[in-house]
Design a protein around this nucleic acid. Sequence first.
DNA 1: AAGATAAACGAATGTTCGTTCTTTTAAAAT
DNA 2: ATTTTAAAAGAACGAACATTCGTTTATCTT
Lengths: 195, 195
Amino acid sequence: MRAKDYNKETAIREQAIAMIVAEGFHGLSMQKLAKAAEISPSTIYIYFDSREDLLNKLFYYVEDIFNRETLKGFDPGMGFEEGLWLQWKNRYRYAREYPLHFFFSEQFRNSPLIRHKDIRENQFRSAMQEFVQRSEQRGEIAELPPEVFWSLAYGPFYTLLKFHMGQSNMAGKSFALTDHKLKHAFRLVLKALMR
Amino acid sequence: MRAKDYNKETAIREQAIAMIVAEGFHGLSMQKLAKAAEISPSTIYIYFDSREDLLNKLFYYVEDIFNRETLKGFDPGMGFEEGLWLQWKNRYRYAREYPLHFFFSEQFRNSPLIRHKDIRENQFRSAMQEFVQRSEQRGEIAELPPEVFWSLAYGPFYTLLKFHMGQSNMAGKSFALTDHKLKHAFRLVLKALMR
DNA sequence: AAGATAAACGAATGTTCGTTCTTTTAAAAT
DNA sequence: ATTTTAAAAGAACGAACATTCGTTTATCTT
């Protein structure tokens, strides 16, 4: 029998992500996707059950890479300053290594549809929670309502990152996000959070 | 001659916004919109040139209300703490008074398409810029690269707001954003920004 | 080399899309 | 009261949509 060509599956995935980033995910048409991946429309359905299945799998695929990249070198037992800075650096590196993935995720973050339901990122979430909890117990940071903590710890980071990645821009100017600026913002966040 | 029924125009607008918030803006179909507004599809084209024209006008419409609401009681000459807090309060009130508008805007903020080009919010922008500039000159806050300032001043606010509005949620729990929590976050932001 | 099997194809399905055409209707102007 | 005008309607357009069907093709097993 003829074997599956898994290069085709990745080709489909990559092209789909690129297409969604370029035209919005409403602009993902199966027929255009087939054309971009240089295959027949029906071939897509060998690898994915449906358009919806494809979208879901894209989502999980992107999320898995994000989780893996973000946890690199991370240990929930780290000191707060070191740990949070590593998170910033990891997420920054991720956004630069996988810019299409980053835009893809941002597009869905405020979108009504796709799976705002399940939380299968248990390992990831619990690592993050443990890290914060331990930092609190050590007395490095004040005990805050979790959403207040998160807004402070990552809100500025993502706002800054989105400026940089040029999805938003202020008055037409695009901003180069230097490591220096990132560190600058980080120090201010620390100033807000640390006892 | 027969007069235009401008109730119809607003009906179209309201239904369109509701539809976009509910199903994503790819889900705005002219025929479904017509059905929802209880008019004929062709009637929409009396008030709007095309689907794209409708989307653009929706965008400007929402933006105008946002600008107006956000500038209420605001004066660029205000002290930094008072002025920024007023901005937070105004934006919070806006999001609660016009939740559909808020979701609508959030949906477009990370979307590739619509008008990431023009800046017609000149009056609004310049008021904000002047406010920050004066605060710096008065020595209330450190001079920061503008995007670093903005990430700190509003990043936490919007992150918090989105938690509250339930577009995102952490581990299935939804968070009630009390005035107390808002103020709490604000104090931390101040701690980061003020000299 | 022959047969089996599933990958891959391209055409075709029925549906929905945005938009336009033609006709009817209501209200303002005479 | 009649004429005029544009609003409003609803059917109809071709194009694009997600998906499926029947056939062909490539590769593995024997």
